[in-house]
Design a protein around this nucleic acid. Sequence first.
RNA 1: GCUCGAGUGGUGGAAUUGGUAGACACGCAAGACUUAAAAUCUUGUGGGCAUUAGCCCGUGCGGGUUCAAGUCCCGCCUCGAGUACCA
Length: 969
Amino acid sequence: MDYKHQEIEQKWQAKWREDKTYRVVEDQSKEKFYVLDMFPYPSGAGLHVGHPLGYIASDIYSRFKKLQGFNVLHPMGYDSFGLPAEQYAIQTGQHPAVTTEQNINRYREQLDKIGFAFDWEREIRTSDPKYYKWTQWIFKQLFNSWYDQKANKARPIESLIALFAEKGNTEVTACSCDDTPIITASEWTNFSETERENILSKYRLAYLADSWVNWCPELGTVLANDEVKDGVSERGGFPVEQKLMKQWNLRVTAYADRLLSGLDEIDFSESLKEQQRNWIGKSAGASVTFKVANRDESIEVFTTRPDTIFGVSFMVLAPEHELVDSITTTEFKDQVDEYKKLSANKSERERQANVKSVSGQFTGAYAVHPFTGGNVPIWIGDYVLAGYGTGAVMAVPAGDQRDYNFAKKFDLSIPNIFDGANLEEAANSDNSIPLTQSDFLNDLCGKEAVLKCIEEIEQKGIGRGKVNFRLRDAVFSRQRYWGEPFPIYYENGQPNLVADDKQVMLPKIDTYLPTPDGQPPLARASKQDWNIWEGDSMEFNTMPGWAGSSWYFLRYMDPNNDKQLVDKQIAEYWNQVDLYVGGAEHAVGHLLYSRFWTKFLFDIGQINFQEPFKKLINQGMILGNSAIAKCLGVKVKELTLICGTKISFDRERQVLVTKSMIDQDKLPSEQIDRMVDIRLPIDNLINEFDFDLVSFLKSARGNQFTDSVFLSETGYYLEGKLFDLNGTALNEPGKFQVFREVEKMSKRWFNVQTPDELCEKYGADTLRCYEMFLGPLEQSKPWNTKGINGVNNFLRKFWNLFHSDGQFMVSTKEATPEELKILHTAIKKVQDDLDRMSFNTVVSQLMIAVNELNEINNLSEEVLSKLVVLLSPYAPHLAEELWEALGNESSVTTAEWPKFIAANIEESSFEYPVSFNGKMRFKISLPTNMSKSEIETEVLSHEKSKHYLDGKTPKKVIVVPNRIVNVVA
RNA sequence: GCUCGAGUGGUGGAAUUGGUAGACACGCAAGACUUAAAAUCUUGUGGGCAUUAGCCCGUGCGGGUUCAAGUCCCGCCUCGAGUACCA
């Protein structure tokens, strides 16, 4: 009987569904274990081989834990709100819910084929109204909360209102916006509703504010900082600009310190924690106020080095700083305006690209040094960011390289405040040099100087010690359709929550574009299209993608609860996620926001733990192998079209070399400095000669590339023909050169490999084992199916252990010591390796066991059935089939993990490697219970020892029992 | 630039607390079966010198600690990831 994977896998997948094998219920008698995968966004491309890598690992771990007696929760769902479905909707008019549903069905089909032990009765979808009802609920709680720094937790807004009525806000220690005015109790009492709300919004954890946001015109929405990479949008790579807009914000900054210290309690990789630490960016220093000379204004700066204050020789404000206009003197007004315009026009990307070049402009104004009373010129400059600290710096060119560069460029003075430091080439970076020319700080250095200076600053009333965070409040509005609608309506311009028990549903709209006057798509819905319409208007923004994913792990515990987001007792049972598996790309987005929401839900008493994920492992990416044709390109600032029209660009741009350009001799060859990569579908490239590049380009890229010039091995390739470097047509079959590159799998690069065909050809069990066998889970690796045969062979050999002459055949005899040794070696290794998440070496060990058992005839049933249990997390279908054949009536998932008995692998002798001066020379088999001195005698009297000692007496003999013998001669 | 990883045969990788480097698999080579091929099985496979025992070299490079280093320490090189005018 052959191993027929298709039959077996279909049979068991059906049976599992029928028997609800993977249904999980709360069971207080058992210890729980919660394993979670980052749920996928159901994209149109379906699952590729990279997706299941993490799911397989977590599935194996879940099955392993279950066999060990834990009650394991291992759910799956979909992060189903998001941009691609909406972009598709814009193009086709198809409602995103329809596309999403289709994609989910495809995902489900693919997931089912791999044999995962998910409890599908707990499936959730973030776009399901029954789910986002509770996302909205959490938003309502955030809106109705403020952060009390004294209690160090979120508290109901009513408690703040009571405080205001009693004492105003002067004694309230809360996290609030920087521009919060000071009010007295009587002011508060006499405020109008609108005035009160304006104050409260400075304290609410969800608040509306005009803020500088990353506006992406191409996507028609704002993006959070973590959704912008290198100055372009993470999704799509579109340019991003800064824009001032009224947006919902979440006051994540209130949690900055707890998010930082919480990192010490959780088991995330060091690099991931480091990324979160950097993102939070805590730095301690002082805030100091500088008066503007002869004016009422003053400028507040933040500095981590207040001790260098005597080295201040100028100040720099960000060009966007609010005081720039008022302090600039008439004399410099034009130049300042010019500079402001210049930097405003620079995109985020250009600003980043110009890090090296120093630019700035003097305002004509001076500040007064708070200690010396001296005049300090005030400049504006690009290198000071509006968004960090106060958007202004006190420049200390002697101690800060950027200030130094600025001073050099504009010939500003560089007072040396470091005793004996050399400032010829660069600013001083040695913290052990004592200060000089610094009044009360002279001869101090480092921390001591900083503390002393803060003391003085506070005494003088010109500032205070301050901790600053890089972390900004998170923009929570998106000008999009396919997201959670806000439970908010507006009346007289003020936001109000809809009633507690009401949920705002996503209304129907005719098309998924913004309105002609630039309002978000939801503004298209008429009053009747909304299930709730209150006040003057509803909120037309929707929530960002991370809203639903910030708390989803809680919903799996109690997915159908329509009274609350999760039952408290159930949440207490399942508690934290014990193991979270997913990609590292969510380091500062999802993983930070869900930690934030968890802490908030803890504060308001919904759950009794503060960190969502106890342990996290990042699976590596599986990379695709791309095939690339290189198309010639030039960089030009100007281009003449055939019709004679001249086009000029603002900067050099990439242009493809086309046939007409060559015909017209418009191409100085030295200009051909760039190659444009065109990615080709790898599946069609088995025979490169047969690949029709021209028709491929037509179908995939329109006419854009059809007459472009491609590289061939000896010249160039154009419209299916080959030419040599002189442009002479060659009379041979056309072949452009194909370059290979290993990179991220992506639909648009045609390098995606789906698990489907492998499931069909080799079976899910083989695929599961193979993906694990590829190497350590956390490492990225290129996809390569070369080794899959070996793994498939292993499963066939495993099957064959149970069969002979085409019949199922196992012996009821007692297991021999030899068999037991093989089995228990495997039990120990598999168990230890799974405990440390070394999934690849488990497969190796099982292979070793199978290879060794293969040598033995008439294998005992006792050994084989335990071996089936060992294999079952990796190859559940095969294991079920054999388990059933062994006469078991219940699923192998209900079996017990075999107990390791050390006696079975104990040996009476050990083969000692004997080294001379550290070099292994020969082996000698000795009883394990032999004493050190006996071993030494045995080794030295060995005939080969005489040869290696060469007449010398050994100086020393090291004997490590059951390990090694080393003779030092 | 800074931070964090990683560098081991032709390839993916193993070596868990310093103790036989290269497990397991792929690939390759030879052989068996076959008219032949595929599939399967057997054997070999880090490099070099000898081909029989034996010897030398080998975990990115250069030092060091140790009886013993892929593993620990110091200094470099390369690659990957993240981050970037953060005051």
